[in-house]
Amino acid sequence: MSTAYGFECKPGVTTFEGLPERIILSKTGLEVEFDVYRDDTDFRDMYTIWEEIVDEGKTYPQDTTTEESFRGYFLSHNCFVFRLVDTRRTIGGFYIKPNFPGRSAHLANCGLAVKMEYRSHGLGHYMMERVIKYAKLIGYEALYTNLVFCSNPASITVCKKYGFVEVGRLPRAGNLKGLGYVDALQLYRDLSV
């Protein structure tokens, strides 16, 4: 499989028992289904969400996107989604992939994406719980984030609630839309605990 980083997915788990999983979001009562990404049903919605995020320009470093670059970045390894039960529309998802090649491939990176109209529904917490669970199942030993912009308090709060610790800060790491240069945190979560 070709990837944005030029290395392959961790061998091992490719199917996951218990999926799809139905969830009622406690904050809003919204009923969603958590499942593995399926290209035939999820691609269009996930790419639209990604276009919104890139256009917003405040949480990821990309300033442009194409379907090909989205596939290489977000869909290159393990990807999971949340769908509305009633309409089957995909409203968010996350990837888990190695952050580095070879001898450091035990460190996973993850990225979360939620459709704008479904933010503040508590979905980020459900996502992070599953990021941790499935990263362990896939065989990673830790999660490491490269760029959580300091202007994204929701992501920082979710990460810290789920045991991530700050291990670094990159000054002026992103020139974000409407914000200018913003620092980014590097966060680490040991998966053995």
Score class of each variant (00 low, 15 high):
residue 134 Y to D: 08
residue 188 Y to Q: 09
residue 155 S to H: 01
residue 12 G to E: 03
residue 20 P to H: 11
residue 40 D to T: 10
residue 19 L to A: 09
residue 55 D to Q: 11
residue 93 G to F: 05
residue 111 G to A: 10
residue 191 L to T: 08
residue 31 E to V: 15
residue 54 V to S: 00
residue 4 A to T: 09
residue 78 N to I: 07
residue 37 Y to L: 09
residue 112 L to Y: 09
residue 190 D to G: 10
residue 93 G to D: 01
residue 174 G to D: 00
residue 51 E to V: 06
residue 15 T to A: 15
residue 160 K to E: 14
residue 184 A to M: 02
residue 18 G to Y: 08
residue 27 K to A: 13
residue 125 H to Q: 12
residue 109 N to G: 14
residue 109 N to Y: 13
residue 58 K to M: 00
residue 151 S to L: 01
residue 110 C to V: 10
residue 125 H to L: 09
residue 190 D to V: 07
residue 46 M to C: 11
residue 162 Y to E: 05
residue 128 M to E: 11
residue 13 V to A: 08
residue 125 H to D: 12
residue 29 G to E: 10
residue 59 T to F: 00
residue 87 T to G: 06
residue 99 N to W: 14
residue 6 G to M: 07
residue 104 S to L: 15
residue 82 F to L: 11
residue 141 E to G: 15
residue 143 L to H: 11
residue 49 I to N: 02
residue 66 T to N: 01
residue 68 E to D: 12
residue 53 I to Y: 00
residue 115 K to G: 04
residue 162 Y to P: 04
residue 189 R to A: 12
residue 132 I to T: 06
residue 142 A to Q: 07
residue 92 G to D: 04
residue 63 D to I: 01
residue 189 R to C: 13
residue 166 E to Q: 14
residue 63 D to W: 03
residue 98 P to A: 03
residue 45 D to L: 07
residue 61 P to I: 00
residue 155 S to N: 02
residue 170 L to S: 09
residue 120 S to K: 15
residue 94 F to E: 06
residue 146 N to E: 13
residue 74 F to T: 13
residue 13 V to D: 02
residue 178 G to V: 01
residue 170 L to R: 06
residue 70 F to Y: 08
residue 11 P to D: 08
residue 103 R to Q: 13
residue 115 K to T: 05
residue 55 D to E: 13
residue 62 Q to K: 01
residue 74 F to L: 11
residue 65 T to E: 02
residue 123 L to E: 02
